[in-house]
Each structure stands twice: as structure tokens, then as C-alpha cells.
Design a protein around this nucleic acid. Structure first.
Lengths: 177, 177
DNA sequence: CATGAATATTTCGTATGCGAAATACTCTTG
DNA sequence: CAAGAGTATTTCGCATACGAAATATTCATG
């Protein structure tokens, strides 16, 4: 009677603030450390992600890459430009669909992928190992629920972008698309 | 006997991958929507964060701002430069310590802060409301544990930056420092 | 009180990251 | 098969984001 479901208590608000803050902390610190570690191998964070993705798969179109990395095509174009200049990667026009550009590792890129042991978001992954299996399962379940809520909210709201129906931003995403 | 604690099963690895992916999804999508909503008010995402922070506090030094936003000083300098050009904010040299720059809202900035209803990371915050109180508590507990693990790891590792001992990156952090 | 270590901010160069518009190509339908 | 809708990528301009180095100022010690 006092507080309907949507009323937010002060306590609840503080808890939410802490959660938001911690989410940002975990994401940004992991990103920073990845970037720093990548530098030791003459790579940037996103470039490391690209190399690891391609090493696992072989080749990906630019759009597939951008989806895997949760970024926009226009962002990935720039990343690939620089990697191509550095001879890490090459663009190959697809034969079936000539609009598509396939991205492949060069021998130099493959060698680098093999020699670089770090993986994107390693810091966060490592932290996950400190959780009990029970906690890990619970975390995954809760995050999945949040993801669903967000996707539903975006469905009736977003995708105002001109670009392809991507999902969203980068720097260390899936290692397996 | 088969798998010592540090051995990672395939199943576990996939769960970790999903968690990492979801973390990135939640962070980046919330960030994107905030940015998009801010645009309707002639603001960028980080600028919205600055305005909301200052509206709650009054004034903050540049370093305090960068810590609240989990970004580097050099990044915030640029953000404040543009906001100052837009007359949203002004720099005031501190009297006690003349190295310090205090950032304050201008009347225009205050008015804008009042008229803009959106808050940074609103999408994610809103999603949190879909959780049961129990789930929210559990999530907070697990994230706090991860945060501690990460801080410990960084303690004996990081902070290789030349800049002040900040914590890390931006775009929508605390609303209350 | 002079010097050097420490701290706060800025400057600079480079790499994302994004949306909007332009290009190039494919796929309908008529 | 030609015109237009749809899709893949690039181009462009702008705003972060970062580290390293430069500046300005304060503090600690001798």
C-alpha cells in the first residue's frame, strides 16, 4: 500500500547506483588493461580483438566483424584500414556478393595471433574465476535477464541508426562469434 | 582429481564468454542510448554526465570530475573545453590551491540540468528495476566481489600511467560522487 | 628561503566510436 | 531487363579516450 512496484526507495536507488558504478568500473578497467597489454605487441585493444576473432574463424566480412565486436561498421572500417597498413590483415572482395568485403589475416597477422597470449577483457575473465560455480551461474542468469529486458526496451524504441541492424559497441567482445 | 581448481572446463569457458559478452552489451547499449537521448538536448553523453554531477554537487575540480566519471584528466579537459565554449560551464581557479581548477555550471548549464530529465545509463538502470529485490542484492554482491578481485589484481600490476592515480573510463558514471 | 619532489591541469598525437551521407552492388517487381 | 528498394562498405566530421610530455604551482627538506 505504501510503495507500489515502481516506487524506488532510497536504499534501492543507492544499490542501483553502486551496481551501475561497478559495471562501468569492471568494463573500463578491463578494457584499459587489455589496451595496455596489447601495446606491448604493437597492437591496440580493438586490433587485438580482431586478430583473435580471425585466428579462430579464418575470415569474416566487415559486418560480421562489427557485430562480433559490438561496434558500428564505420568504426571497424577505420580499424581495418590501420591493420591493413600494418600488413596484419587484408581485404578480399567476396565473389558471391561483390558488396561484401572479407577480412583475412596475413601470415604476419597469423604469426602475431599465435604469439600474443593475451585475450580481450582478460582481467575481467580472470576475476570471474574467483567466483564459485554457483555464483557464476547466478551472475549469468541475472545478466541474461537484464539483457532480455534491455533488448525488449530497444525493440520498441531504438535502432534509429542509418546503419545495418547491428547490436552495439567494442574493444573486446566475443572470442567466438 | 581430474580438474584442479584452475582448470577451466569448456562449459565454464562458454559461461564466462557469455558473461563477458553480456557485460559489454549492457554497457555499450546503455551508453549509446544515453548518447542518443542527450543529443535531443544538444548534449553528448559525457556532457550530460558532467551536468548531472555538477547539478548535484555545485562544483568539482577537474580531477574530482575525472574520478567520478572514471576517465583520465586529459579526456575531461577536452570535454570541459567544449562545454565552456557552449557556455554550459566555467572554470574557476581555486584560491586555496592555484593548481586546481574548479568546474561550475553557468546559469545556462543549471537551467539545462533542470530541464533534461534523462540520466546517464538510464537504460541499464531501468532494466535493474525488472529484477527482484533478492536478485538485485545478489547481483550487487557478486559484482562487488569481482570489483575487489580486480582492484587487488590492479594493485600489484597497474597504474603505469603518468597521470594522477585515477581509477578509470567514462560516459555515465555516478550521479553522486 | 632555495631546490627538488610531488601534484593539478593542459597540450599533443593517435585511435576509437558514432551517425549521416555517399558508393557500389544485389534483389525484387513490374 | 530496367527502376527502385534494400544491403555492404566507405567517407566525413566531430567527440571522446588515452599516454606522454609540458606547465604551473605547492610542498618538503635542508
Amino acid at each position: 500500500m505504501a510503495l507500489p512496484p515502481f516506487e524506488e526507495t532510497t536504499e534501492e536507488r543507492e544499490a542501483f547506483d553502486r551496481i551501475v558504478e561497478t559495471l562501468i568500473f569492471l568494463y573500463t578497467e578491463s578494457r584499459r588493461l587489455t589496451k595496455e597489454q596489447a601495446r606491448a605487441h604493437e597492437l591496440t585493444g580493438p586490433q587485438l580483438t580482431v586478430i583473435k576473432l580471425l585466428a579462430g574463424i579464418g575470415e569474416l566480412s566487415l559486418t560480421e566483424l562489427s557485430e562480433s565486436m559490438q561496434t558500428r561498421n564505420s568504426t571497424v572500417t577505420g580499424i581495418i584500414d590501420r591493420m591493413e597498413s600494418a600488413e596484419l590483415v587484408k581485404r578480399v572482395r567476396s565473389e558471391e556478393d561483390r558488396r561484401v568485403v572479407k577480412i583475412r589475416l596475413t601470415p604476419k597477422g597469423k604469426a602475431l595471433a599465435k604469439s600474443v597470449p593475451i585475450e580481450p577483457m582478460a582481467l575481467f575473465r580472470q576475476a570471474l574465476e574467483s567466483l564459485s560455480p554457483q555464483e557464476a551461474r547466478t551472475l549469468l542468469k541475472i545478466l541474461a535477464k537484464l539483457e532480455k529486458t534491455v533488448r525488449d526496451a530497444l525493440g520498441g524504441e531504438l535502432r534509429p541508426s542509418t546503419e545495418s541492424p547491428n547490436d552495439a559497441p567494442t574493444h573486446g567482445a566475443r572470442t567466438k562469434p
